Amino acid sequence: MANVFVALGQNVVFMSAVTAWFLAQVLKTLTSYWKHGEFNAERLVGAGGMPSSHTALVVGLASAVGLHEGLQSSLFGIAVILAGIVMYDAAGVRQAAGKQAKVINKLVRQLRVEHTINDIRLKELLGHTPLEVMAGALLGFAVAYGLNKLMLLS
């Protein structure tokens, strides 16, 4: 079992993706603290926020595959398609779902005042703005590039 962890730690593609995701989650927590003035532990694992950790992960993955296997490789093509789907979902579908949740929550608050209704609250921070997705993409690429250079030196 220890060999699996050693092998993963030496896998530049795996480490690029995971490191980009981790750094994005930490940065997301810090930007949330800066914006709201209080620590929110949910930001360490939650969706939404700056930068997009989903995007950082898939762009880190695709970039590392491209740098390691080559831009003509089938694996790079698959990784780029996967990254495109995730980025579209983050900035499109999930952002729209978050906006809908905001409207539904407002309607529920108004109905609760006028009528008896169960207190439900939908999660509103689901998706990303294009800027948050772009920041995640830049972070993912930078991590993959940096780790690729470091691992080549080893």
Rank of each mutant, 00 (worst) to 15 (best):
S32P: 00
L131W: 09
V133N: 12
H115M: 09
L138T: 02
F5E: 04
R121Q: 08
P51K: 15
M15T: 15
L82E: 09
L138P: 09
L71I: 07
D119W: 01
V93I: 15
Q100P: 00
P51N: 12
E124C: 09
G127D: 05
Q25K: 14
G84H: 06
I81C: 05
S73P: 05
A144C: 07
F5N: 06
V65C: 03
S74W: 12
K123D: 02
G46A: 15
L71K: 08
K28I: 00
F5A: 14
L23I: 15
A56V: 12
A91K: 15
L44R: 10
Q10D: 04
L139V: 06
E132D: 08
Y88A: 00
V86S: 11
T116R: 11
K35C: 00
I120N: 10
L150M: 02
T31K: 09
G136M: 04
L44C: 11
G49I: 03
V80K: 07
V133P: 11
H115I: 01
A90L: 05
L57T: 13
T129Q: 15
I81Y: 01
S63Y: 07
V93H: 05
R121T: 01
A2C: 05
I81P: 00
L27A: 09
T19I: 15
L125I: 10
A17M: 06
L152W: 00
A2K: 12
K28R: 13
G77T: 13
I117S: 10
Q95L: 11
Q10N: 14
N105D: 04
L122I: 13
M134S: 13
V133D: 13
S63T: 15
M134P: 01
L61R: 05
A47T: 14
V59D: 07
A97N: 03
A64H: 09
I117A: 02
E42T: 01
E38D: 01
G92Y: 12
H54T: 14
A64F: 03
W34Y: 14
G46I: 01
G70M: 04
G127N: 01
E69F: 14
F76Q: 08
A7N: 10
A96K: 11
F76M: 10
L153C: 02
R94N: 12
G140P: 08
I78W: 10
K102R: 12
L107C: 11
R94F: 04
R43F: 05
S16V: 08
V86F: 10
L57A: 10
K123T: 10
W21D: 00
L122A: 07
E42Y: 11
G49N: 04
M15Y: 06
